[in-house]
Design a binder for these strands. Structure first.
Lengths: 400, 400
DNA sequence: GCCATATAGTCCGAGTCATGAACTAATGTG
DNA sequence: CACATTAGTTCATGACTCGGACTATATGGC
């Protein structure tokens, strides 16, 4: 019933060109107006007008003129670090975390509170998170960084700002977005931790494929459970009911035992942390790593076995999605030295002549999700600066 | 290096609004200009101008005024059937097919040539296809339908207008698009048969979910091999190297035998037509169906076994992609009466608490791919009428 | 030192296109 | 038959981008 697309109007044209210019500067800063014009296809005069809007909005800044070969030197443009900032928060099974990121994506505040949240009262955890958020917001303010929003990473599915189905925290319908919004006064988004980790890895992980940043890949994030984030064309793929990418519940053993999710033979049931620790006969991940480093055969076998199961799941992912890369994150990044060989060979054993994706290891580890959460906030500003300008104008009016 | 998006200019604004209006009429014809304005968000005056362009381009037509409740009666707008048409072609293992579709999607010509193309010389098959295409084009001309392009469905991967890797025809680097383009003078696209079947099913299959057409689903097309088409947001998902959706090579038996693709335990190896026929101890699909209808236990077991394997693959698809529906097409549609129960229960046995997608059966059978091929041509015109206008203008110039 | 050349960025008139209000057209209602 | 109601058109206005002319600032050859 609803229209499929918005009508194209003059304001929309300008909005789209503002985004085009800002995006170009964000990707290739420092650049001159002339270069931006050449690369975007806009004329120099249009770029000039757009840039001056972006500068007066505080999103861009001019640096000292950079000498070129000949002719008038170009004035370099780059993102204004102080233009706006994003607050990333994360609730996880055994920690809370907060990151403030400036417009360039640089983390300007980082704080992690380690504490096992399993079995705790939900309200207490939420109260802790709000305190963490408040401290982060004060730090941003003291650095002169205006926050334009917040994003919370949670280990479960989210629907309309509420947390539903967190297998390892046992939360149900927790209206986390509202709680954080009320305490901080910011616009708050809620998103699956695995999806945000994938985005964090894309933006800040430093991965490159043939000189280009990753845009089509799958991120595997194993903490207590096993999660997956599918990124297609630089955007998270969520599926019809926001349930896509649940790599942990891909079938790797059709006749296998029942999993906590209700299915049978899921990857998480066969290669989750619990299973690995049990097979390796150790009590904790730190013990497991020590055992692997010491060359303990049971530990190495357990990790390799998990790697083989992971390879089966990834083989299906590869045949279905044909990504350019797979990024191993979370616990799998830590275990990569003893796991990735088994995973690689299992992948090639179960896939045919398909162009194989690269198997990369996360550079951010368990920071990926919070970083990604903070990143989504500033990326949203970069993707739609006109909306940000409108918000600024509205606030300016209400203040004055 | 290249700009990520085109700059928004006035021409682009108009192009986008033309598409918006034409799309709205295509979805909800007959409609009045006023209704289009209300639904798209454009003003009445803008819609008037856009509509008059579309009418003079021959893409829209006015029907007799339809009386409304009160006030001046509305003039109904609908797609002009004669505005343009698309030629769909299909090369498959045991037949060639052609369909001409008018702008409304109605098939205006349909022809199938049954002949086993395995082992035949490639050039002979291409010559046959060109003859089939020529006959179809002449029929379109005699009906006064101007073809705006052609699309060829092939049972394999395609890259840049060439067929690569057709597992069951053994073609390699056949420049089919060029051949058809030269003989017909049309713009020709080449696309995987499984993807086109999915699109055909979406556009012409008559499926509805809560009153809305399918937009996020997976189509399973089993002919000789097993193919899959993933549709996300109404568009085929192709992955990074055009290899996505290969459902036939999802792993359903990690310790299973080697498949023709090089992998092990693929769905196609475990539940392909060969395997089913062998288990049922019959020689052909027609024999198999007769045996099933007669209640032959070996046949029923073979089909149910394939259904269970299919369920395992679909369970992984569902956890990874979270589609709204699964459409069983091709041979699986024919076998659905004896297969879908096993598939359903296997899906629920292997998935957890995920919102389960609907399991639908194809209404088009083996016509889906050609219909989809013809549909892509006219859909492209509807999605970008401005480009079509430009082509018309260019041709008009070169003729006069 | 001076002038040609080259490049960066601004200014301003022209053209394109959607908007919105006023207007015309065609019907039903009391 | 006046009036309300809805459909569609006309036209002046305004928001854009475009393109060329213009200014600003460098290098290099003479």
């Amino acid at each position: 019933m609803t229209a499929r697309t918005e009508p194209a109007q003059h304001a929309g044209m300008r909005a789209s060109n503002l985004a085009l210019v800002l995006g170009e500067v964000a990707r290739t800063s420092p650049v001159s107006r002339a270069q931006v014009a050449a690369r975007t296809g806009l004329t120099k005069s249009s770029v000039s007008g757009l840039v001056s809007d972006l500068i007066s909005a505080g999103l861009l800044q001019e640096s000292a003129p950079a000498a070129t070969e000949r002719g008038r030197p170009a004035t370099a443009l780059s993102l204004a670090p102080g233009g706006t900032a994003g607050l990333g928060l994360e609730v996880n099974v055994d920690y809370l975390a907060a990151v403030v990121t400036d417009l360039t994506g640089k983390p300007r505040y980082h704080h992690v509170v380690r504490r096992d949240n399993r079995g705790r009262d939900v309200d207490d955890v939420v109260a802790d998170l709000i305190e963490v958020a408040g401290t982060a917001a004060r730090s941003a303010a003291s650095q002169g960084l205006p926050l334009s929003g917040a994003c919370v990473a949670v280990p479960g599915l989210t629907v309309d700002g509420a947390v539903v189905r967190t297998p390892n925290l046992d939360w149900d319908r927790v209206y986390l977005a509202d709680a954080v919004r009320e305490s901080t006064g910011l616009e708050v988004d809620l998103e699956n931790e695995a999806n945000l980790a994938a985005l964090g890895e894309m933006w800040f992980g430093g991965h490159e494929l043939d000189g280009a940043p990753l845009r089509d890949f799958v991120h595997v994030s194993g903490e207590i459970g096993i999660g997956g984030g599918i990124v297609i064309g630089g955007e998270v793929f969520r599926g019809a009911h926001a349930g896509a990418g649940e790599l942990g519940h891909v079938v790797v053993a059709p006749d296998g035992p029942q999993c906590g999710c209700g299915g049978h033979g899921c990857l998480e049931r066969m290669a989750g942390q619990q299973e690995i620790l049990a097979h390796a006969q150790v009590a904790s991940m730190t013990d497991l790593i020590r055992a692997c480093e010491a060359g303990d055969q049971a530990a190495l076998d357990a990790v390799a076995g998990a790697g083989r199961h992971l390879g089966v799941a990834l083989a299906s992912v590869i045949t279905l999605l044909d990504p350019t890369a797979i990024v191993l994150g979370g616990a799998f990044a830590t275990l990569a030295p003893w796991l990735s060989a088994a995973t690689s060979s299992s992948i090639s054993h179960h896939t045919g002549a398909i162009t194989p994706p690269r198997l990369l290891v996360s550079g951010l580890g368990s920071d990926a999700a919070v970083r990604g959460a903070a990143g989504t906030v500033v990326r949203r500003v970069i993707a739609d600066p006109a909306a940000h300008l409108a918000r600024q104008a509205a606030q300016g009016r209400s203040v004055s």
